[in-house]
Design a binder for these strands. Structure first.
Lengths: 237, 237
DNA sequence: CGCATCCGTGAACGGTGTTCACTCTGGCTG
DNA sequence: CAGCCAGAGTGAACACCGTTCACGGATGCG
C-alpha cells in the first residue's frame, strides 16, 4: 500500500470532484436543475464530457450531491439566523428561522426547487440526504423543547382516546429523536408549523402568491409567521 | 368563406389536437413532466414528430394545456367532493375539500407536481391558467362566506392599527372578488388555510413525510385538516 | 382547370447523457 | 533500471431529444 502517493492521488481526485460540484452549482443557480447539462459543466472545465464519468457514475449522482449541499446551505442559514437571536424569547427565534428560510429560498430559487419542489420521477433519494434534509426540522424540535422550558403549557390533545392512540402511533418515527417529556400534541403542532413554513415559502417561491393574490408577500409572510406560531400554541403567551 | 368545409376542417383539427393532449396526458401520468417527449407522443399516434408542429407552436404550449387540464381536474374533484356534502355544516365541507385535494394529488402525482411543484425555469404561465388555477381557492372563499352566515364570529385582527392597514393593502388583490362583508382577518385566515392545505399535500406527495417522519400520513392528514380549520378560526365552534 | 391552404413526411441541425476503445503518464514492483 | 498497471483524459459513436424546412399530396375554391 503506497500510502503517500495514494493519498495525493485521492486528494487530487477529490479536488476535481469538488470543482465539478462547484461549477455545477453555478449552473444550477443560473439555469435551474432541468437545464443543468453535464456537457456544459465539462465545457466550462475545459474537459471532454466523457471525462466527467471518471468522477460521477451518472447525472443523478451529481444531482444528489447538489441536493445535499442545498439542504446543508439552507440548514446552515437557518441555524445561523437562530444562533444570532438564541438568547431571545422563543417567539423571536421562531420568527428568525422562518425569515431565514424564506430569505434563502427567494435568494436561491433553483436550489430550493431542487429540494422542496417536484421530485425527479425516477429518482429515489439516497440515505445520505436524510441527515441534511432534517436540519431545519431539528432546529424547530429544539425550539419546542425550549418553549416548554420557558413555560409553554402544552396544548390539549384530541378529545377521544382512540384518535390520541392513533396519533401517537403515527408520529412514532419523529418521536424517536425527541425528548420524552414533549407531549404528543406538541409534536403534532411542531409538525404543523414545519408544514406551514415550507408551504408558505413554496407557494411564494413557486409563484402561487403573485397572480392577483397578494400585493406584498413579505408583509404577509411576516404576519402569518407570527400568527401561525401563536395559533398553533407552540409559543408561550 | 366556405362555411361548411371550413367547419369540418376545423373540427378535424380540434379533434387531432385533443388526441395529442390525450396521449400526452397518458405519458405525463406515466413518466412525469420532465420525461414527456413530443417524439414519443408522435410515435404513439403513428405520425412523424414534425407533424405535431401543425398543432402546437412548441412543447411549452402542450405543457400549458396539460397544466390547465390538471388544474381543472383537481378543481373538479374538489368541487364534486364539496357538492356531495354541500348541505352539511361547513366543517364537513372543509374536510371534504381537503381530502379530495389530497386524494387527487396522490392519485395523480405527476399532474400535481406539474401545477404545484417546481415551475419550469424559463416558463411563464399564460393568463389562461389563472382561472382554472383558482378553482380550489374560490371554493374555499365560498366556504368562508357560508361560515359567516352559519354564525362564525370572525377572528380578531392584528393588535396595532398600522399592521392592520398594511395587511389590508397586501390582500387587496384577493379581496377584489370577495364580498365586502368578509373582514380582513378572515381573508387572512382563509389564505392561511389554503396555504396549509397545499403545503401538507405537497409535503406528502413530494416525499417529505415518508423518511422516518410519519407512519400513517393519511391519519395525520385527517387530524391536521380538522385541527387547522379550528385553530385558524374559520369554522363555527 | 389553376390555385391556395392545410396536412403529413423525411431529412437535417444542434443539443443531450452515456459508452467504449484508446492513449498518456506517474509511481509502484520485480 | 525495466516493466507494468491504475487512473485520467480523449474523441468518436449511439440513441435520444425539440425544432426547422423543403417537399408531396390532398382538398375545396374561384
Amino acid at each position: 500500500m503506497p500510502n503517500r502517493a495514494r493519498l495525493a492521488r485521492e486528494r487530487a481526485h477529490a479536488e476535481v470532484s469538488a470543482e465539478i460540484r462547484r461549477v455545477a452549482r453555478d449552473q444550477l443557480a443560473e439555469v435551474g436543475a432541468p437545464a443543468l447539462s453535464l456537457r456544459a459543466v465539462a465545457r466550462e472545465m475545459g474537459m471532454a464530457p466523457s471525462a466527467l464519468f471518471r468522477y460521477l457514475p451518472n447525472k443523478d449522482a451529481l444531482l444528489t450531491a447538489l441536493i445535499i449541499e442545498s439542504y446543508d446551505e439552507l440548514g446552515e442559514a437557518a441555524e445561523q439566523a437562530e444562533a444570532a437571536v438564541h438568547t431571545e424569547p422563543v417567539t423571536a427565534r421562531w420568527s428568525a428561522i422562518c425569515h431565514a428560510v424564506r430569505r434563502w429560498a427567494l435568494d436561491h430559487p433553483h436550489e430550493y426547487a431542487l429540494v422542496y419542489g417536484s421530485p425527479v420521477p425516477g429518482y429515489v433519494a439516497p440515505q445520505d440526504t436524510v441527515g441534511p434534509a432534517t436540519r431545519v426540522a431539528r432546529l424547530l424540535s429544539a425550539l419546542l423543547g425550549d418553549a416548554l422550558r420557558e413555560g409553554l403549557e402544552p396544548p390539549t390533545g384530541p378529545p377521544t382516546e382512540e384518535t390520541a392512540a392513533r396519533l401517537h402511533a403515527t408520529i412514532a418515527p419523529v418521536r424517536a429523536d425527541l425528548p420524552d417529556e414533549v407531549p404528543d400534541e406538541l409534536v403534532v403542532r411542531g409538525l404543523m408549523a414545519w408544514t406551514y413554513l415550507f408551504g408558505a415559502v413554496s407557494f411564494e417561491v413557486f409563484g402561487h402568491r403573485t397572480f392577483g393574490v397578494l400585493d406584498d408577500p413579505a408583509a404577509f409572510f411576516d404576519y402569518e409567521a407570527g400568527l401561525v406560531a401563536r395559533l398553533l400554541g407552540i409559543m408561550p403567551t
